[in-house]
């Protein structure tokens, strides 16, 4: 418990608020089947565009579906997909970045060229091009997101590895007889866990935003899937008269990416002071 309190303290007030927001959003998404008052996909044309009331907390949409229920379900696919995409990106980035940074030479030149090309491409347009070519759906969105974000990850990992490679404990373990594999797994990767965790959180936030964008553009998740991005798009024709239809899912997207980004920032600060203190002590 003391460790937890220390951890929360080091995150600062914004970090703690962000964690609370994230827990609420994740929890409600997870518990949606039990919390939702209605089936999110049940269409009742007689009740279409109902106003906010005790019966429908956030009213109903153009097909008479309960907006609050859809909102609860709306994060599930995006968050799961964002997690999957970020894990995949991280694995690719970790492998490419580590090998390029550690071995250097032609391997580094080749991967750097690739990274530069992918970083030079405009992210969203490229993503739309891939998702559009492959056709809308979860799989194509996954591919589009991974293809457009592995380069950033690799670049950061490469930089970290190059920094660690110069430390004398790397030469030390090599002299003791640790081979490259041993050195990488036992020495290089554990010493960049901090930056990786930070990068991981920041990336998830960005990926959730990208998923919402793609879904809004009609290239991501397809209606009738209850999803925040899809809901924003569905509500677009009516938002002048029924602005809460667009506000509710929009707010959810904004809140979750804001919270995750703040956690990433707070985590970075918390980890930075730690390393600074360690440096100061030694």
């Amino acid at each position: 418990m003391i460790r937890l309190r220390l951890f929360l303290h080091s995150l600062g007030p914004i970090g703690v608020i962000s964690i609370v927001i994230l827990i609420v959003l994740l929890g409600s998404s997870l518990l949606a089947p039990w919390l939702a008052p209605y089936d999110p996909n049940q269409i009742r044309m007689s009740e279409r565009l109902a106003p906010i009331s005790g019966e429908h907390w956030l009213g109903t949409d153009t097909l008479g579906r309960d907006v609050f229920s859809r909102l609860l379900y709306g994060g599930r696919v995006s968050i799961m997909l964002a997690l999957a995409v970020t894990v995949a990106t991280m694995l690719i980035g970790l492998i490419i970045g580590t090998l390029a940074g550690y071995f250097g030479g032609w391997l580094d030149d080749v991967t750097q060229a690739g990274i530069h090309i992918f970083q030079g491409l405009p992210g969203l347009s490229f993503m739309i091009a891939i998702a559009g070519t492959l056709g809308p759906g979860v799989e194509s969105m996954f591919i589009a997101l991974v293809v457009t974000s592995w380069a950033d990850f690799s670049r950061v990992v490469r930089g970290e590895v190059m920094k660690i490679r110069e430390e004398s404990y790397i030469e030390g373990i090599r002299a003791i007889g640790g081979n490259h594999m041993y050195t990488l797994i036992r020495y290089v990767i554990p010493n960049m866990i901090g930056p990786i965790i930070v990068l991981f959180t920041v990336r998830i936030g960005r990926v959730i935003l990208s998923i919402a964008s793609l879904s809004f553009l009609g290239l991501g998740l397809q209606p009738p899937t209850p999803d925040w991005g899809v809901m924003v798009n569905d509500a677009r024709p009516f938002f002048r008269s029924y602005f809460h239809l667009i506000l509710a899912p929009g707010l959810c997207i904004a809140l979750i990416s804001f919270a995750i980004n703040c956690i990433g920032d707070a985590l970075r600060d918390a980890l930075d002071t730690k390393t600074e203190k360690a440096g100061w002590l030694s």
Binding site: Y169, G172, I173, S282
Partner: peptide
């Protein structure tokens, strides 16, 4: 690899000599 046990090297920087 087996010869590594017979020859060792000790470096200059104590602050980065060991796995942190």
């Amino acid at each position: 690899f087996p010869l590594r046990t017979k020859m060792q090297i000790i470096f200059q920087h104590p602050d980065s000599a060991l796995h942190p």
